[in-house]
């Protein structure tokens, strides 16, 4: 009985970890596709989003001002990518597991672009950096 329980536990453990890594792979693939579609981070920028856990860069395509979006955490990991080109909204997200997000961008460049669109954001980034140092 105990041996059977241990075998089942080991199986579940393997399966749970496999599901986690497979999900992260799928989300990272989607994020990488959106990242490739965006091209250079600074081109066709149409807006930004400043949230507590991450900040986003918004890109336009044609008439659509919110066509593509990349959300980047403090370490430069893209934790969410959104594609609104088709009229609907497609998400790829690793918000819940940011350490598994393996598509990265230069965080300093992201902050530069945001500050260009939002001068007051510079103060917020500086304050965040000071807090992180503490």
């Amino acid at each position: 009985m105990l041996a059977a329980a241990l075998v089942v536990a080991a199986l579940l453990l393997g399966l749970g970890r496999l599901e986690r890594s497979r999900h992260a792979e799928e989300q990272n693939d989607g994020i990488a596709r959106v990242r490739a579609t965006v091209g250079p981070l600074g081109s066709s920028l149409s807006g930004f989003r400043f949230l507590a856990r991450f900040q986003c860069l918004v890109y336009s395509r044609g008439e659509n001002r919110f066509a593509l979006e990349l959300c980047v955490d403090r370490s430069g990991r893209i934790v969410e990518a959104i594609d609104r080109r088709s009229g609907g909204t497609e998400y790829w997200s690793l918000r819940e597991d940011p350490e598994l997000a393996d598509v990265r961008v230069d965080r300093a460049e992201v902050e530069r672009h945001i500050v260009r669109m939002c001068p007051v954001c510079e103060g917020i980034f500086e304050r965040d950096a000071q807090r992180a140092d503490l």
Binding site: L51, P119, C121
Partner: peptide
């Protein structure tokens, strides 16, 4: 609104759908 290009007030991520 942090600036005219702030997307959050126009299309809030938590209310998009």
């Amino acid at each position: 609104r942090l600036s005219p290009l702030d997307a959050q007030p126009v299309l809030p991520l938590e209310s998009e759908v």
